[in-house]
């Protein structure tokens, strides 16, 4: 049921590539088509790659704490670029310091991300979430055209 195109990368001035690379490998293995932008990727590059490849989702990683600054306005950038429906995930150590996860998650959902993932998320959980979200979207699309 897969085959969707996903953009992955580590946003901003962040060089933490290991988990992102392992995630990208797992997503490919699960049957998705993965465009891996790697470390140190500006927000604009995610959008550009999504337009060029007609992507279905963007998965943003951030490990260094400054993700909160880097992700400000990310959904707006997508909408400005005409990517109104694209699925947006974010995951990692998203803020500086130890804060309860629900508050951090709320902050990123309010920014327009569809899902936010805490540290130590397993790759299987991401695959499962993607599969569910894409199925739901196909369901919605199905109902729209009876």
């Amino acid at each position: 049921m897969t085959g969707e195109t996903l953009i992955t990368g580590v946003i901003g001035s962040d060089t933490h590539i290991v988990g992102n690379r392992i995630l990208s490998m797992a997503l490919e293995k699960a049957g998705f088509s993965v465009i891996a932008l790697g470390a140190l990727t500006p927000a604009d590059d995610f959008i550009k790659a999504a337009i060029e490849t007609d992507a279905d989702a963007i998965l943003v990683s951030s490990l260094y704490g400054q993700g909160e600054l880097d992700c400000q306005g990310f959904r707006d950038l997508c909408i400005e670029a005409g990517l109104n429906e694209i699925l947006l995930y974010v995951g990692g150590n998203l803020v500086v310091g130890k804060h309860p996860w629900p508050g951090v998650e709320r902050r990123f959902l309010d920014m327009g991300f569809d899902r936010a993932f805490p540290p130590a998320t397993r790759t299987d959980d991401v695959v499962e979430a993607l599969t569910r979200d894409f199925e739901a979207r196909r369901g919605r699309a199905g109902k729209a055209e009876p």
Binding site: L63, Y64, G65, N93, V96, G97, K98, P119, A120
Partner: peptide, 9 residues
């Protein structure tokens, strides 16, 4: 002991 979540207090 905060290493897993990022920058310690």
């Amino acid at each position: 002991t905060h290493e897993a979540i990022g920058i310690p207090t």
